[in-house]
Computed example of a mutant assay.
Amino acid sequence: MRAPIGDFDSAVPAPDRLDELTRPVAEAVRHWRGSVPAEQILYVDTEPEWADTAVFVEHYGRDILEQSANCVVVAGKRAGETTLAACVVLSHTRADVNGVVRRHLGARKVSFASMDTATGESGMEYGGITPVGLPGSWPVLVDAAVVDLPYVLVGSGRRRGKLLVPGKAFAELPGAVVLEGLGVA
């Protein structure tokens, strides 16, 4: 099957590639619920050394930058309590951590979670964290611009491989909250 975006050799329905995904991502795909059928979530094989955005677009097409999203894990702190959350923003933007995220979480301070925390708590590899399969207790803050795209490229839970997900599916993830202005230039 031809990928709907990017210059990939092929795209395969993610339910047919569960063995290529980390356990939490595979479980999320296996038990997928929502208006978008699981078969519309596609897996594309990619080289792990090309996982970082700038290198990735050099190999798989510059046009993909406008249709790619990053998922970053943040830690909000207030009164000695820490809340982990994910922010999903288009790759050419950054998450408004000190504004939109801090206000939404009701946190005094928000910072990016450490690599050990992000990978340990998500069960995913650094550089491949995806909103698909994150712990159900986490808020998943999604920029409205992500939801508006027909397909969005995100991590697969590993540095090797990516998922192509219909934008509207991000609004249906467990814990998802769609926020205007989450991604800023």
Rank of each mutant, 00 (worst) to 15 (best):
R2H: 09
P4V: 03
F8K: 04
D9C: 02
V12Q: 14
P13V: 08
P13M: 11
A14T: 01
P15Y: 08
D16S: 10
D16H: 09
R17Q: 11
R17N: 00
L18F: 13
D19Q: 06
D19E: 06
E20F: 01
R23V: 12
P24F: 05
P24R: 08
V25K: 02
A26L: 09
A28W: 02
V29P: 00
R30D: 10
H31F: 04
H31E: 03
G34D: 09
S35M: 07
S35G: 06
P37I: 00
A38Y: 03
A38Q: 09
A38C: 05
I41E: 01
I41V: 07
L42F: 03
L42I: 02
Y43L: 08
V44R: 01
T46P: 00
T46C: 02
T46L: 01
E47I: 09
P48I: 14
A51R: 00
A54V: 14
A54P: 10
A54Q: 15
V57Q: 11
Y60F: 15
A69Q: 02
N70D: 07
V73L: 00
V74G: 08
K77N: 11
R78A: 13
T82Q: 13
T83L: 09
A86W: 04
R94L: 00
G99E: 08
V100L: 07
V101C: 04
V101Y: 02
L105Y: 05
G106D: 07
A107P: 02
A107R: 03
V110M: 02
F112E: 01
F112A: 03
A113M: 12
S114F: 09
S114A: 13
S114C: 13
E125Q: 15
G128E: 12
T130V: 07
V132A: 09
G133S: 13
S137H: 12
L141A: 02
V142P: 04
A144R: 09
V146Y: 01
D148F: 10
D148V: 12
Y151V: 00
S156C: 08
G157V: 03
R159G: 09
L164S: 04
V165D: 05
V165S: 09
V165I: 01
P166A: 03
A169W: 06
A169C: 06
F170S: 07
A171D: 15
A171E: 15
L173S: 03
P174E: 00
V178K: 01
G181H: 04
L182W: 08
L182E: 01
V184E: 11
A185D: 15
